[in-house]
């Protein structure tokens, strides 16, 4: 239940559900077991990709399929020190970033819901007085997608995917200090964009 609320897939099994690790071991021999892992992670990763890229379902499916094949090819490269979900996010993230950088396609829709917009506002700001009162959520959503990918990816992982700093470090493969700086600057840029638009 907690996992569903935080949009994260289950990491550990109960008595009936095999754990990610167990499925991983089986998947090295049997692609069908890998199918179960894909099933488990498809929705959370799809949602993450939509938030990150701002692209439609079809484009995101293509990225996801490529990411899954990459995961399968690198099954033996899984580092036991990482959470399996972190590793899945990392590969999917890298796949998406590669495509975003090589593509001229701009985001054409945002998958950030109105309720989620408030997550981006720094805690020392009063969202009600500063932004929400203005009933201008669409501008906020547009500002999020206008952010450079470097900042957008970190903000989405932190505030929408609700990943810990440690997990973000392992997903984007950057040191902790860099992550903290990117979050701080990303928020500042977001506020600046919002202020200049209003």
């Amino acid at each position: 239940m907690v996992a569903i609320l935080s949009h994260n897939p289950p990491e550990v099994d109960d008595s009936d559900t095999p754990s990610d690790q167990a499925l991983l071991l089986r998947a090295r021999q049997d692609p069908e077991a890998f199918g179960l892992l894909m099933e488990r992670y498809e929705q959370p990763l799809r949602r993450y990709l939509m938030r990150l890229t701002g692209w439609g379902s079809e484009e995101v499916s293509d990225i996801l399929q490529e990411a899954f094949i990459k995961v399968y090819r690198h099954l033996n490269d899984y580092d036991d020190n990482l959470k399996f979900s972190t590793w899945m996010y990392r590969i999917t993230h890298n796949q998406a970033i590669d495509i975003i950088r090589s593509s001229q396609t701009k985001p054409f829709l945002t998958q950030v819901s109105l309720e989620e917009v408030a997550n981006f506002i720094p805690t020392n700001k009063d969202p009600e007085s500063d932004f929400m009162q203005k009933d201008d959520f669409e501008k906020v959503r547009r500002a999020i997608l206008d952010l450079p990918v470097l900042y957008r990816e970190i903000l989405i992982l932190r505030f929408l995917e609700e990943k810990s700093y440690e997990e973000i470090v392992d997903i984007v493969k950057k040191p902790k200090g860099t992550i903290a700086t990117l979050i701080r600057r990303g928020r500042a840029m977001l506020l600046e964009k919002l202020n200049s638009n209003t």
Binding site: G35, E39, I69, R73, H74, N76
Partner: peptide, 20 residues
């Protein structure tokens, strides 16, 4: 099984993709 999972598994089988 979702369409994406089926499609991915099919590609893995058809192209005989193996883990490194």
């Amino acid at each position: 099984m979702s369409a994406l999972t089926q499609k991915t598994l099919q590609e893995i089988t058809e192209k005989n993709i193996q883990p490194i």
